[in-house]
Design a binder for these strands. Sequence first.
DNA 1: TGCAACCATTGCACTCCAGCACATAACTGG
DNA 2: CCAGTTATGTGCTGGAGTGCAATGGTTGCA
Lengths: 178, 178
Amino acid sequence: MQTSGTNPTDHPEGSEPSDDDIAAVMVAARAIVAITAQSVAALDDQVTLPQLRVLVMIASRGPLNLAAVAHGLDVHSSNATRVCDKLVTSGLLHRSDNPDDRRNLVLELTTAGRGLVDTMNRGRRAAIKDVLARMTSSRRRGLAPKLYSFAEAAGELPDTGAWALGWTTENPVRPPGG
Amino acid sequence: MQTSGTNPTDHPEGSEPSDDDIAAVMVAARAIVAITAQSVAALDDQVTLPQLRVLVMIASRGPLNLAAVAHGLDVHSSNATRVCDKLVTSGLLHRSDNPDDRRNLVLELTTAGRGLVDTMNRGRRAAIKDVLARMTSSRRRGLAPKLYSFAEAAGELPDTGAWALGWTTENPVRPPGG
DNA sequence: TGCAACCATTGCACTCCAGCACATAACTGG
DNA sequence: CCAGTTATGTGCTGGAGTGCAATGGTTGCA
């Protein structure tokens, strides 16, 4: 249970959120998830969902080894081997040996792999821009700081990569050699 | 195509969104998608993703026939048959004949099926409440109206990706007093 | 040197999903 | 009644993901 914090004593500054606050986030979440899902579905013919998760993970966390990928996806290491194998075959992932510890691999995105992730993010960004453009500037005013506050409360850092795809509750991943 | 709309003439009230506005939504989207993905992953051992998509679709649209399910999931009708078959076997879906047109089935959620969807939504709501509780009430003030405005603007999105991942869980966007 | 731990890979079996072709049943309109 | 359309079901094939067991290579340490 990581959902501690509902206890007001844990967060003296935050009073109990109103039902309307929660409902508003729920409704907005529906739109945001639809946008995100669409940007993912657009890549459906190029990569599968687990494959995309690998690419996004490496894009945001840097080079990883297979054990880290397996742990991040919460799957058996043999599956990580095969998923990454296909990404290498597709030319989206580069696999090389780690000279410091030859037990480990170094998995990095190729130019094509990074381009695919960038394409997804561009599409997502365009969709968001499109929605914002439908709002009047007065309604848009003050939205950004509120969203930053929400993201900060959720533990997200503004500069983190697009690991937001977060298909599951990803476990902490330790980079190879760490 | 209603995806246009970046054209200012289409929305004379909305000026060009700033990069900061877009970035704020992108950042908040990571947190929201993570919350949503978590609530989906929690059901991973009970239903697969296509199965959940069916349940969510019926939960929000009411009873459907197989053709509607196949169209909503954008799959061949034979796949819809088999996916629903498994849900019926799992006790989450109820299949009956339509007396008015016995070619059609009537697919409805069982009590267990609706309970599963409700469980997912409760988890999502709890996670959102947890995040909001971490914000000070001053930062939270005014957030809800902004989110309703955003959701309302997004309500005009093309529905192509609505069920792309089956994560649209609620009724059509309906801001209170809107 | 020997042993334990770690990493990656492969074989095997399984489930699920996907599309296609085809068959069956039911409705529609003549 | 007959032909055409619609809705659903079934057999088939293929692909992707998953876990388990076992193997081989590498490193670290006593």
